[in-house]
């Protein structure tokens, strides 16, 4: 009896061990890279202006805040959560920092820290309500989205914020926003992304986030600090929202209006799910999120540069979501059948 079970057990563990870490680049990401390369090639042929620095730089600058917040959102969605208050939180962080810069002439570093602190506090509120209130994240964040929007509009008063100093031009599209031709905002996003990728893949806490999404009860029973990790995931999202708000201010003009951040949550969620992160939790990658954000922005810029109505880009974003998630579902089904 025992002699037959031992080799089977050993065989199983060796198989599982090999599967614990996913490959560096997964199938979904190869598909996305392929699509992006094909799109860039096509756009390069049909609109000669597309593959020039004058077009690629604004594209990367526009990708930065979505991919950056997407890193936090990936963490949140991996735990089977969601945060739909991103747009409203972006508005609060942006308006407070803009007003502080106008009133106090805040320099760069304190301004960024202020934005991240505000975002972090708002994220902390979400996290605490979700982890300790034990309520479905979509309901909590729908609720806090209303509250944050109220807060933001109150701070706005009934007018726009004018004469914002150009402190954040360092994150913008212009000459001062680049080093060696690479936009700073995109560079920072890449650094954050790299750290998040390493954390999610190689740190115990990163693996715990995935475990929570896979099965929260099982994770808790296995000793994972579910509540603390959930709070950190939403707080991280908040911190990145703050930094993303600085990028957004850097892209804009010296005037900030109340439309800032509107629809940001959907753009971020779209990037994350196109990138192959499962909204059911337990599976996902930040690299996919970056590729998702680049794909969405490529479609948006491409549509404008081809001279098509700009509103048409959302149609392609919708189709991209269906195609990306659809192929993922079909591949996942095939994988389950073979295993």
């Amino acid at each position: 009896m025992t002699t037959t079970t031992i080799p089977v057990k050993a065989d199983l563990t060796s198989k599982v061990k090999g599967r614990i870490l996913p490959p560096l680049v997964t199938g979904q990401e190869y598909v996305l890279i392929g699509i992006i390369v094909a799109l860039w090639a096509l756009l390069g042929v049909f609109t000669p202006a597309f593959l020039t620095a004058g077009s690629v730089v604004p594209l990367l600058v526009a990708v930065a805040p979505v991919a950056l917040v997407g890193v936090g959102m990936t963490f949140v969605i991996i735990t089977a959560g969601i945060d739909v208050s991103v747009g409203a939180a972006t508005m609060v962080a942006a308006v407070v920092v803009a007003k502080a810069m106008v009133a106090l002439g805040l320099p760069l570093i304190p301004a960024v820290l202020l934005a991240m602190a505000i975002g972090g506090v708002l994220g902390l509120i979400n996290g605490v309500l979700i982890a300790y209130g034990r309520i479905h994240p979509i309901i909590i964040t729908f609720g806090t989205a209303n509250l944050f929007m109220y807060l933001g509009l109150q701070i706005f008063g009934s007018s726009t914020v004018n004469n914002i100093p150009s402190t954040f031009a360092i994150f913008g599209r212009g000459e001062e926003g680049r080093t060696l031709g690479i936009p700073h905002s995109f560079l920072i996003t890449l650094i954050v992304l790299g750290a998040a990728w390493w954390f999610l893949r190689h740190r115990p806490s990163g693996r715990h986030l995935l475990a929570i999404g896979g099965n929260e009860n099982a994770a808790r029973l296995a000793g994972v600090k579910v509540k603390q990790l959930l709070v950190s995931a939403y707080t991280l999202t908040g911190l990145l929202i703050g930094l993303g708000a600085c990028f957004t201010l850097g892209m804009g003009t010296s005037t900030l209006d109340q439309g800032v951040g509107v629809g940001r949550e959907l753009a971020v969620i779209a990037a994350v799910v196109i990138g192959g992160t499962s909204v059911l939790g337990g599976r996902g990658s930040v690299l996919g999120t970056l590729l998702g954000a680049i794909l969405v922005q490529t479609v948006t810029s491409g549509v404008t540069q081809l001279g098509w109505p700009s509103q048409l880009s959302d149609l392609f974003v919708g189709l991209a979501i269906i195609l990306a998630v659809g192929t993922d579902i079909i591949r996942e089904r095939a994988r389950k059948k073979t295993s």
Binding site: V317, G318, I322
Partner: peptide, 14 residues
């Protein structure tokens, strides 16, 4: 077998 959130997000955009 799309999660409802994703399917309706896609059709929202489209």
């Amino acid at each position: 077998g799309f999660p409802p959130l994703i399917a309706t997000l896609a059709t929202f955009y489209a």
